[in-house]
Amino acid sequence: MKIDFIKMEGLGNDFIILDDRDTKIEQYENYPALAKKLCSRHFGIGADGIILILESRDHDIKFRIYNSDGSQAQMCGNGMRCFAKYLYEKKMIGKKAIRVDTKAGTVIPEVITNDKDQVQSVKVDMGEPVLACRDIPFESGNKKAVDEPLAVGDKEYRITAVSMGNPHAVIFVDDVKKVDIVKIGQLIENHERFPEKTNVEFIEVVNKSELKMKVWERGAGITLACGTGACAALVAAHLTGRASQKAIVHLDGGDLDIHWDKASNHIFKTGPATLVFDGRIRI
């Protein structure tokens, strides 16, 4: 079977977008196996994950994402920007703001266009941050885990646990360049206190309105950017008095503008999305 695909990236976090509204792809091969195959950087197209465009009964469209290891993620901020830009530019949906069905609930991305109606950036209403440990989930004796100690081997890290539809462990460090992202990231991702595993963000505070971030993503490893992680980072930084309600998060792939609107308690994320190439592949 041959399928059409589009390769996109948001700050270097790259995805393969597949239109399976007629379910023909799923009928031929299950999504987890397909994700492993297509995301291989040696034997496939190469990506951090695949994103499926699916029909929805009560939303404008349905978004589903599978990581490169075949695991399903609830949401992905960078992937959502790519998703929204693709839908708008291909005229699959004519509205600039759309209601998207995700495993994390309703997400509303809005494309920002220039005078030629070209998408310049995408602003995504990421919803409300979840801080209750039982809902993240994170095993703790406290209702919320803000700057809470976490024993990892013979070392202790202080984390702030946040869910943006998917779990995050945010750690503040003096210099992100000196952190062993792979070693520490793997250990915390698979820590027993995170029953569904977790994404891990390492944050260096530049000032109240700027954060540097490196990320270890659950199911994908080191990536150049993580949209939900950047949102979680701002939440954790604000809760611990390190940042204001709005900040630029500097990632390896570029910058994201994150705003925690306290009036609505929603997190808004604005950033770019770029087409890399499209094509057809036999599966």
Rank of each mutant, 00 (worst) to 15 (best):
Q72H: 01
H42C: 06
G77A: 03
A243K: 09
L256A: 12
C133D: 02
A151F: 00
L18T: 02
F5M: 12
R134L: 03
I98K: 00
A97I: 06
F268R: 00
F5P: 13
K7Q: 12
D14N: 13
H191G: 06
F202G: 10
N78C: 04
Q72R: 15
D19E: 03
I283F: 12
I184C: 08
A236D: 09
P272M: 09
V182M: 09
G227Q: 06
K103W: 00
I45P: 03
D154H: 12
L187Q: 15
P149Y: 03
L275E: 15
L87P: 05
E204V: 04
P129K: 02
V205P: 01
A73E: 03
D48V: 07
P149E: 10
R158N: 15
V162K: 10
S68H: 01
S244H: 01
I222A: 11
R21P: 01
Q245I: 06
S68R: 09
E128Y: 08
P137I: 12
E26S: 13
D180P: 15
V235M: 10
F138R: 12
F63I: 05
M75C: 05
V235K: 11
I222G: 00
V249N: 09
L211F: 05
K123Q: 08
H191P: 08
Q74G: 09
D58W: 02
S40A: 06
S163C: 06
G105I: 02
A232Y: 04
H259G: 00
L131V: 13
H250A: 13
D4W: 04
V179K: 09
K269N: 10
G44M: 08
A161T: 13
A243P: 11
V122I: 11
I61H: 03
N166I: 04
V235C: 12
F43T: 08
N166G: 01
L256C: 08
S140M: 05
S56G: 03
I159W: 08
L239Q: 12
R41S: 00
D20L: 07
N30T: 14
D180S: 13
S56P: 03
E201N: 15
A73D: 05
V276P: 10
I6P: 04
G79T: 05
T113E: 14
L150F: 13
V152K: 09
A273W: 05
D22W: 08
R242D: 05
Y28C: 03
G253C: 12
A225P: 14
E29P: 00
D19A: 07
K36A: 01
N67A: 09
G10E: 06
A233T: 15
F15C: 11
L187T: 08
M92W: 14
H250R: 14
W216K: 10
K183H: 12
W260N: 00
N142I: 09
A145S: 15
D60R: 02
L224G: 02
V173L: 09
I17F: 13
S56T: 03
L87I: 04
R57F: 04
D22V: 07
G271T: 12
T198V: 15
I267G: 00
I171L: 14
L38T: 03
I184G: 11
R282C: 13
T160N: 05
I61T: 01
P272C: 10
K212T: 08
Q120F: 01
R218W: 08
H168Q: 12
I25A: 06
V107D: 04
K177F: 05
I181M: 14
S68M: 07
L11F: 07
C226D: 11
G229S: 10
D4G: 09
I222K: 15
D69Y: 02
K178Y: 00
